[in-house]
């Protein structure tokens, strides 16, 4: 069994990371999961959270706002709408993201008065954003 796999983190504007990794912790929409080499092929959407990348030489972390991940035995691609290295994240970033989610939530409440689905989705997104802020102590 190979002990590393190819990992790519890309955002629409640029490619953020492309390296060999031993494990990646992914904040999946249905719960966190760790992908290691020879993982079964999975495509999952992401919730806002921290992506932890473990390489043989060290660990790095990124804050992602959403997107999806494509996992297969030899490679892992994460396509994130917005991804920032954890060390560069500031309170301002988080506040901005929470504010966006709040606006979306209010808009959903306004628009879908009697349909809980979209409102709940927006509420979950907002809660995820807030939890993310708490998680990284800001």
């Amino acid at each position: 069994m190979a002990d590393t796999m190819q990992f790519d983190l890309v955002s629409p504007e640029r490619s953020l990371a492309s390296l060999q990794v031993s494990a990646v912790l992914i904040p999946g929409a249905d719960g966190d999961m760790t992908a290691m080499p020879d993982h079964a092929p999975v495509i999952t959407t992401l919730r806002p959270g921290v992506l932890r990348v473990e390489t043989p030489s060290g660990t790095s972390e990124y804050v992602v706002s959403g997107g999806f991940a494509e996992i297969n035995a030899t490679s892992l691609s994460v396509l994130a709408e917005k991804a920032i290295p954890l060390t560069e994240v500031t309170r301002v970033h988080i506040d901005e993201m929470i504010e966006d989610a709040r606006v979306a939530h209010d808009a959903a409440k306004e628009k879908f008065k009697n349909e809980p689905g979209p409102v709940d989705d927006a509420a979950k997104l907002l809660a995820d954003m807030v939890a993310l802020g708490d998680h990284i102590n800001m």
Binding site: P41, V42, T44, T45, G67, F68, E70, N72
Partner: peptide
């Protein structure tokens, strides 16, 4: 091509991704 598992299911992913596809 590989057969992927989808999490959540395919339709939920698609519903999430299609609007992003327009933006992309």
């Amino acid at each position: 091509s590989t057969v992927y598992d989808y999490e959540p299911d395919e339709e939920a992913i698609l519903a999430d991704l299609l609007p992003r596809g327009v933006a992309t």
